[in-house]
């Protein structure tokens, strides 16, 4: 098969590994991680634009290296090519290997901030777009410069308060790291914020199955041309919209 993979850059290393090992010919396009900071609607507009740009008749399928991503994939469709999307809330599930594992870990570990190679090297925190729009990760000096002493300090305090609400940083190790730098950086970050550190072995089975064309067993949603993805708000996470 000839496949087109459109993926979030947060999964850059994982997707490259999977593409290299795929029995199929895979073209890859990475989109900025910052897209997700636009919120569901803004992200969906951009996703749709990228999918529409894929030429008709060239590929057997367009693979999406995403999850529902805060409704960023809600409403997405392709006019001429089939779309394949893993059933996952977000990249954390793709790094853990299943939506069930993700849900379980999430329920058992509230107050956890997640890191992986992509979450560390592709725009720290939610930096790329977010720091203009939400002020997260903007330094105190920058805040004061922009909003003045009084308001700047207030904003910095408000927007860093989340750090004391979290209690744990979980680094998902995929085995694709060249050395220990990522894990060390994650450990350092946890110590710096006063969070407990945990190293969790990732599982790339969903990523590999996506890219190698193994889409059975209910772990992927397939949209035929013209069909749309919808958030399902249940364990299936994403479904196909019924046609009117």
């Amino acid at each position: 098969m000839r496949l087109m993979l459109i993926s979030c850059e947060v999964l850059f290393r994982e997707m490259c590994d999977a593409a290299a090992r795929s029995p199929h010919q895979v073209d890859v396009e990475f989109l900025p991680k910052g897209l997700h900071d636009l919120g569901g609607k803004g992200m969906a507009v951009e996703m749709q634009r990228r999918i529409d740009a894929v030429p008709a008749g060239k590929y057997d399928a367009i693979l999406l290296g995403y999850g529902l991503c805060g409704n960023g994939l809600h409403g997405i469709s392709a006019r001429h090519t089939m779309l394949v999307l893993p059933r996952a809330h977000d990249c954390i599930a793709l790094l853990m290997g299943s939506r069930e594992k993700h849900q379980q870990y999430f329920d058992e570990h509230p107050g956890t901030y997640y890191r992986s190679t992509g979450w560390l090297e592709r725009g720290k925190g939610l930096q790329q777009l977010t720091h203009v729009t939400t002020g997260i990760d903007v330094t105190l000096d920058q805040m004061i410069e922009k909003y003045g002493e009084d308001n700047g300090r207030y904003l910095h305090e408000e927007l860093t308060r989340y750090r004391s609400a979290y209690t744990r940083l979980t680094y998902i190790a995929t085995g694709l790291e060249a050395d220990s730098r990522f894990e060390e950086e994650a450990r350092w970050e946890a110590a710096e914020r006063g969070w407990e550190f945990e190293r969790l072995a990732g599982n790339l089975v969903l990523v590999h199955r996506l890219v190698s064309g193994d889409w059975g067993g209910g772990d992927f949603v397939i949209a035929q041309p013209g069909e749309r993805f919808r958030a399902s708000y249940d364990d299936s996470i994403v479904r196909i919209e019924e046609r009117a």
Partner: peptide, 10 residues
């Protein structure tokens, strides 16, 4: 954006 919202609320 969010910072402006927070300041007005303040």
């Amino acid at each position: 954006f969010v910072p402006e919202l927070l300041l007005s609320a303040r």
